[in-house]
């Protein structure tokens, strides 16, 4: 039961990654691509959490913590680059 529900949520997260990828490909300018990138990384954090559930290992959550931190820095770098104040 729990497995089935969590499988459905993995599928939904994968769908959201694909939708953001559409925005990443199409996005008229760089800022649109960055927000798509941001949504993809945030969705990947949830995905790693669910992979940790399916493999039943807590150690995978460390990866998610580092992931959360680095998407933040990446977005700020591109934002400052866009404003020409890097």
């Amino acid at each position: 039961m729990v497995n089935t529900i969590l499988t459905i949520s993995v599928v939904l997260i994968l769908l959201s990654i694909l939708l953001s990828l559409y925005r990443f490909i199409k996005g008229p300018n760089t800022a649109d691509r960055v927000i798509a990138f941001d949504v993809m990384t945030i969705a990947s954090i949830g995905l790693i959490g669910l992979i940790a559930y399916f493999d039943n290992r807590i150690v995978y959550l460390d990866v998610a913590v580092v992931y959360g931190l680095l998407s933040f820095i990446g977005v700020i770098v591109v934002a400052k680059f866009l404003e020409k104040s890097l």
Partner: peptide, 29 residues
């Protein structure tokens, strides 16, 4: 309790999907 947790997770992933849908449908940045 586990099923409650799983349902909460499912709601979270539905919210993620809606966010991505909004990303596609909205008109400007």
């Amino acid at each position: 309790l586990k099923i409650i947790g799983a349902v909460i997770t499912l709601m979270g992933s539905i919210a993620l999907l809606l966010g991505a849908l909004g990303l596609v449908r909205m008109p400007d940045l």
